[in-house]
Design a protein around this nucleic acid. Structure first.
Lengths: 237, 237, 237, 237
DNA sequence: TATGAATGAGCATTCATTCAT
DNA sequence: AATGAATGAATGCTCATTCAT
């Protein structure tokens, strides 16, 4: 006669913010391990010991959860960028730093990159989203460095900065593709990529490749469409 | 078996090929219009006036159909590449041609590009597929040009050609992303991209950006790891 | 316990009542605007600036809230019926008044009618509910008028009063259906029905239609199962 | 080593029309037994020994299935109406027939009536639907009879036929409400209503009630707003 | 060769209600 | 009296693929 229905056991009550963080973390890990589509909201809930409804209390849709996971990541990536950039002695060094740090992000969180490419950027709701804005601000850092370098006489004056930005970020993405696709992951963080990314070497190569094209210098008369300028160039070490 | 019907040995094969082409065309158009996921096999069949089963006679899976559509496209893209490249007077001109033709492909078939990025390259079966091979051979053309340019003394000797390749193709992809995402399409071909791609100007800018970094010239002594060579070189390979 | 606060014995009860009224009003408005199912308890709470739990303090279930909303309405509808009926000079006039006032209710509160029909009367808990009882007392008024009219010799003696009641209320409901379904509403009150109800004309037509069937008169001998009576009867009861 | 997956057993292949009929029947029975909401599509499928997908092959949505079930019913109800009506000797007899047959429908299929009222007529997609049209054509039969009766001099000339139609159908609905709500049902057909509907008696009462109001006759001078006309009246038997 | 009927797994989302604080 | 975090059940629908005819 005692009721067969088990007493409802509630998960411990958490403050809103804590719960949100927990959910974001669990979602990030599962999305990274199994991909977005293959992760059921129920799994995320299970991992936290709550029910699906609890997650929907804090996130309106599964997709919103994905976007928030990536927004979190972007916010981390901004970190102390401003300070670190300021600490560099030349614009080229700043460029190198941006490239290196981006490569590091790719190396450490390949699956989050994959989520960005596959699930977010190629959907129509990306345009105009907060994530789009974060992404623009993130890559804008490079544009700023380029423009500062131009102003400082370290880079050529006629550079198409946005195209350059695409060259760098698109180039890194393209080059890391196989790594991104095959990396395996634990708790959202890379565990073993098939042939890890040698980010130091890559950053160096990329920076050189780019700079030797943009650094002001005496160009070969026949192929340079730009007037060589004789500006003093202290920073170009 | 002793039918009076005259033996038309090749006729059935022709019919089969025609059917296959028909299907590929219909599939390409629908995939481009609505995307891969949102296109039902039944729709493709409907467009051809057949039933689903018929399509499965010729293609084992929907995904195989997608891959074949893209393989066809790649094969078209190879076209007269070899001849056209040979017709160029310098390695820089060949590089420019590759860039321009790739941009043209993006401009004319943005939705096929999108299928490549979204549906194919980010799936695990891409690695090792025929399409992967085609893609490699396609981008290898650029590597070949670079290496020929190096051998011919037109480009610097120590260039990391694969990275350069990623720079170019990844850069183009990145730069064209918004265009690719928003292009509208009719019969697989672009109708109106939001802000068309100015491929002439882009090709010029890209080539310059890349070449000024790789073309042999007097570099700034302290930052150039490569010996500048002074010989103007009539650019033929 | 020995607080200096003056004992306000009834104040809390008043507060409670006010709260209840607030909730009923908010619920009525939302139920009318969006329908019962589509109104979430959370929305009602939101509208009042409280949380869901607060509403459950005063109403055990959402459905109870609905029933109470409609009970309130019925109680208003009774209003001064008795007095107003008494003021009429004939039973026919009383019947006309009942019909007219019912039509006015439909015209002014079409969405509440809809809630009655759709959400309440067609559920199994209606039978035996307070609302059912109110509804019966409400329609009983018409039966009473009919019977008084019979007793007073104004109406035929053999009328099936309950069937007549159904004819009137069912007929009104049926005739107003499109209006009820399409009315738009603000704060529970009708704003603009698609093609407003001309209740004066309708009431007249209905009364005539019904009375010419029930009023004592010379009927056609062959079809009338009732003895026609020849006495002109000054219609007062 | 033998696969654990059971061999897929297909339900017997049926011709499209047979399958459709089967589904409609099963759906009708379940909707009548449990109501629309409480019937899961999976249950209907189960009853037929097929899977849900099969049902969706023939009906786009669960709601479409409901509508088709009711359309079927309406079409049956039209039956030999025209012929049967023509067989009546007076307009009053025709009216009686309409009322009686409608009552019979209510008596035999109370749950289908309930579906009409609850699930269909009070939804916004009803207006303009095929079902709406069928319903109008069905009730139009009565309007036609009324108008023929007017033309034939059997009914009064100034009758508001649409209002009369509402009176009859709305009245029947209202009067049968408790029966409709409480009827229990087997295979879509009524088994035992709480207090069965005495349709013969009801039809007689209703016809009389209505006719004594509409049949042309010498009205009581003081209460009749209509000029008594001395038209020859053969049909009024 | 073509048909087209049948399969069947898979999951996001809502919201009335409870109850610890 | 009020809060608000947590529950948890319940299901319509899609579509690639198969296979009997």
């Amino acid at each position: 006669m005692s009721s067969a229905k088990p007493a409802r056991v509630h998960a411990p009550r958490l403050a809103r913010e804590q719960r949100v963080d927990e959910i974001l973390l669990a979602a990030r890990d599962l999305f990274c391990e199994k991909g977005y589509e293959l992760t059921a909201v129920a799994e995320i809930a299970l991992k936290l010991g709550v029910v699906e409804g609890t997650i929907y209390k804090y996130f309106a849709t599964k997709r919103e959860l994905l976007l928030k996971v990536l927004e979190y990541w972007y916010e981390e990536m901004f970190g102390d960028y401003a300070r670190d950039l300021a600490g560099q002695s030349s614009h080229r060094a700043r460029l190198h730093l941006l490239i290196w740090r981006h490569l590091r992000s790719v190396r450490d969180f390949p699956r989050l990159c994959r989520l960005m490419f596959r699930e977010v950027q190629s959907e129509h709701d990306y345009r105009g989203s907060l994530l789009h804005d974060l992404n623009r601000r993130y890559t804008q850092l490079l544009v700023d460095v380029i423009e500062a370098g131009i102003a400082g006489g370290e880079f050529r004056a006629d550079l198409p900065a946005p195209l350059l930005r695409s060259l760098v970020y698109g180039g890194i993405e393209h080059h890391s593709w196989a790594y991104i696709m095959n990396a395996t992951v634990k708790n959202g963080r890379n565990v073993c990529g098939r042939g890890a990314l040698d980010i130091d070497s890559l950053a160096e190569q990329l920076t050189t490749l780019v700079c030797e094209g943009i650094a002001v210098r005496h160009s070969h008369p026949s192929s340079a469409p730009i007037r060589g300028e004789d500006i003093p160039r202290g920073a170009s070490a």
